[in-house]
């Protein structure tokens, strides 16, 4: 599977470098909203995952690799491994940049926006969100191919954001049902809100158990997603 990641590395390395440079430029901007930083970090993960797929689609190399001595299941597993490596690499850059910028620029905006994003709970949140995004995208990609998968995925995210906006509206009229979860404080900065939830869980369970649970949850999500992807990809015809 590492061989598959290596060919993706050869194909996508310059664009990965370019997206990383863009992220670094973005991360040095004085951002106050932690949710923006988190959303951009997540977009960074997905963009990097898509780069090799875009090259594969443009150059039709899926046909080539499906003809090589590999099973479809191996090809799918290789893509999941690539997703994990990208998640880890992006995580290093995202949190590394947060730490570096936070250390250099000591303004109230940075402290307010970035401090919560440097906690272990923020790392867990990033891994869970990125892992979930990868695990939901890949089955759609293996079933529908790049073009249609991207349309479905974008449509799904638009629906999620629309629903989130709707929830915010509901919360603003103080609906009793959701008030305990979506407090006004949470809605003021949902990024920090999510991290606060995770922080509460980490405090309750202890850091080792919390991270074990995060790892187990991610493993379960990835295994289930990979199973669906393998089934879909084995049916794909080139």
């Amino acid at each position: 599977m590492l061989k598959l990641c290596y060919k993706d590395y050869l194909a996508g390395r310059w664009l990965w470098l370019a997206t990383s440079a863009i992220y670094v430029l973005y991360a040095v901007q004085p951002l106050g909203s932690s949710v923006m930083i988190m959303a951009f970090g997540l977009a960074f993960v997905l963009a990097n995952l898509l780069i090799p797929f875009i090259f594969e689609d443009k150059d039709k190399t899926e046909v080539l690799y499906a003809g090589l001595p590999l099973t479809r299941a191996t090809i799918v597993r290789g893509r999941y491994l690539l997703g994990i490596l990208i998640l880890a690499g992006c995580g290093l850059l995202v949190f590394g940049m947060n730490a570096a910028v936070g250390a250099v620029v000591q303004t109230p905006i940075y402290q307010g926006g970035l401090m919560p994003l440097r906690s272990p709970s923020a790392v867990a949140g990033f891994l869970l969100a990125g892992g979930l995004a990868i695990a939901t995208y890949l089955p759609v990609y293996h079933k529908l191919g790049l073009g249609r998968a991207n349309m479905v995925f974008v449509a799904a995210w638009l629906m999620i954001f629309t629903a989130a906006a709707g929830l915010e509206r509901l919360a603003s009229v103080h609906l009793k049902l959701i008030r305990p979860i979506l407090t006004a404080e949470f809605l003021k900065d949902p990024g920090k809100g999510v991290i606060s939830w995770l922080e509460a869980m980490r405090s309750a369970a202890g850091t080792p158990i919390f991270f074990l649970a995060v790892g187990a949850l991610l493993a379960l999500i990835f295994l289930a997603s990979m199973r669906i992807s393998v089934r879909a990809y084995e049916r794909r015809e080139f």
């Binding site: 090259f55 443009k58 003809g67 001595p69």
Partner: peptide, 24 residues
């Protein structure tokens, strides 16, 4: 040999070889 060979087009021939060699 496909009628329209499909390799990563932006790579050099040596690097295309590198993307395929590990599988054989």
């Amino acid at each position: 040999v496909h009628d329209a060979p499909c390799f990563f087009e932006h790579l050099t021939l040596r690097n295309v070889g590198r993307t395929i060699a590990p599988f054989y």
